[in-house]
Design a protein around this nucleic acid. Structure first.
Lengths: 338, 338
DNA sequence: AACGATCTTGACACCGTTGTCTGGAATATG
DNA sequence: CATATTCCAGACAACGGTGTCAAGATCGTT
């Protein structure tokens, strides 16, 4: 392969000058610059990114670490939206995106550490899961670059992009109440999962109930792990214990799909008012009639990408960002009360 | 950061010996090896992958290039399955996966070349699209490592993982005929899109019709670009021109979703027998009643990953691989004839 | 004309590994 | 016991760029 030296020789300049043309071009005379550019063109020269990385101690790569099997990573549409947001931002500013899902779940976070420590990436974005709260202590101790996505752990003051779901669930519940619903289920996100003292989704729900003068019945709330299967199972539990249920709010779109499937299987079509959880493009296409809490997944990923890049470039931690949820009404949904 | 030299000093050996311990450990005495390993542990040493890459001229990275905007890449579930297959294989053999979708579509393939030429990746997997047939000429001319995914271009003898969809569409059509269907639509993949002289999906369909003694009516076949939107539009066109249609075979799952939505919007629920195109996990969950052509997406991605890694390791081209489709009957689907 | 400031360029070392080559010690062979 | 072979370890250079420093050329200023 042709190197900087070949270009330098052809252009009759020093290697350093070629390097300058490739980088800080204002420090080189225009006439020289053109000579170098011609040589580059003639030789079809492409700078070796690895050599530059070694000298600069910069990989120009971001790791997107998902501590689940790849069957989750690449199948959860919500996660893909976040990944997409990250991809778009970091690639716009010259970083490559390395996606890593562990083959063995327990190795996931060690893999994140390894990637960072051996300089494969300049920093990582960590998807929430059990154990992340522990691993970020290591990142902090070793002064490594990271951002947590979707959540702020208790020991974090910085480096997170979280979402406050209070407004979305509050508005959704309000809306259902305004339609006359009295028994409203909530398929919540897993509280224990996050290891943080916060349950925004539930709080918005409770507040709205209170304002509507409706009793809060804890057994109307079930936790699920965001998956289709959990949506399916938990809804069945819910409707079994509360046959008078007329509406349900889902914490995620896959859970929404599971709920809809359960409703169909139980012959309850058009009997339950379902509110979706993420407002993903796919869901809007599949079920255009569903009102939905909006989860700013794409923006979350984008912000996380922006944050990690800034942290890397500025060499310091950054205060966390909190995004908000909203609620979108799609009136095509039949309103049925039993 | 600690380097090889620090470890060498602490262990009382030469840097090269540490390097040997990290790589070809059989050339070093067991007692020495332990001393080095202890030093590595004590210093929490992590080898600098970039330095090794520079010396070895190996990035240990694979590029997965999708010449569409990220809105396609990360939203098409079929593509994600392929990506997942690639991820699982390459990460199992020690490669990182770099996912790259261009921000501006026209730059996509140049980006693939750039990534490869500047040694960011050792090779790329190219998703089919306009222009790929041109770009692989450059890869071939420069002796760069690549694999095409899902298709074999005319000038290719090697380095592809294609899928022969003849069996799937043949069996699907046969099955529909056996149920008594006479007017069977086909929402085909885009023929022109691929720039190759082959339309396996159509051929299987035509063969089955012929065997069933049913006339092949070209206007029952519409091409779509795999998307939800195309499924929706093309089905509407189809049913408008052929109101006697009773069944339709879709080339992809997103097109299947579009078709199902169109059917619902037209009030034709349970009047059209739909055969899905990919047999994706998500589709099985959403619409468990659908029979489906199986598209070995995951396996395709996996094979492509295996192929590019082998090509890189052995330094030579590899004969292409052809995967087959099948057909899965799910009998829950109502059979309605009009 | 002398001087300093600015612009432009190059020499050189270095980033942190690994490949090549060499050599001594240990072991096997005749 | 001499020699060949194998095993183990180190010296050195190299991968292909970039940072630092220094220096010559050019220009403006007094």
């Amino acid at each position: 392969m042709t190197t900087l030296y070949d270009v330098a020789k052809l252009a009759g300049v020093s290697p350093k000058t070629v390097s300058r043309v490739l980088n800080e071009s204002h420090l080189v005379a225009e006439e020289t610059r053109q000579r170098v550019l011609n040589a580059i063109e003639k030789l079809d020269y492409h700078p070796n990114a690895i050599a530059a990385s070694l000298k600069r101690n910069r990989a120009n790569k971001i790791g997107f670490i998902v501590p689940y099997g790849s069957d989750f990573v690449f199948q959860d549409p919500n996660m893909m939206e976040q990944l997409r947001g990250t991809h778009d931002y970091v690639s716009a500013v010259g970083f490559e995106l390395i996606v890593s899902a562990p083959l063995h779940k327990k190795d996931a976070l060690q893999e994140a550490l390894r990637l960072t420590k051996n300089r494969n990436v300049d920093g990582v974005i960590l998807y929430p899961s059990y154990g992340v709260d522990q691993i970020i202590k290591e990142f902090q101790a070793k002064n490594l670059r990271y951002v947590t996505l979707g959540i702020c752990y208790d020991q974090q003051k910085n480096n997170f992009v979280e979402v406050d779901q209070t407004p979305g669930s509050y508005l959704a519940t309000k809306y259902l109440i305004s339609l006359g619903h009295q028994r409203i289920g909530l398929l919540n996100k897993p509280y224990s999962f996050f290891m943080v003292n916060r349950d925004d989704l539930l709080n918005g729900y409770i507040t709205a109930l209170k304002e509507g003068g409706i009793e809060y019945i804890p057994s109307l709330v079930r936790e699920g792990n965001f998956t289709f299967e959990d949506g399916y199972e938990k809804f069945k539990e819910l409707i079994e214990e509360h046959p008078d249920l007329t509406a349900v709010i889902c914490a995620s779109d896959p859970m929404t799909y599971g709920t809809i499937r359960a409703i169909a299987d139980l012959g309850l079509n058009n009997k339950i008012h379902v509110v979706a959880g993420d407002n993903l493009p796919l869901t809007q296409k599949l079920f255009p009639q569903l009102s939905s809490i909006t989860n700013p997944s794409y923006e979350q990923g984008r912000q996380a990408g922006k944050m990690i890049v800034t942290i890397i470039n500025e060499g310091r931690e950054l205060p966390g960002v909190t995004l908000n949820t909203e609620f979108v009404i799609r009136n095509m949904h039949p309103v049925v009360k039993r």
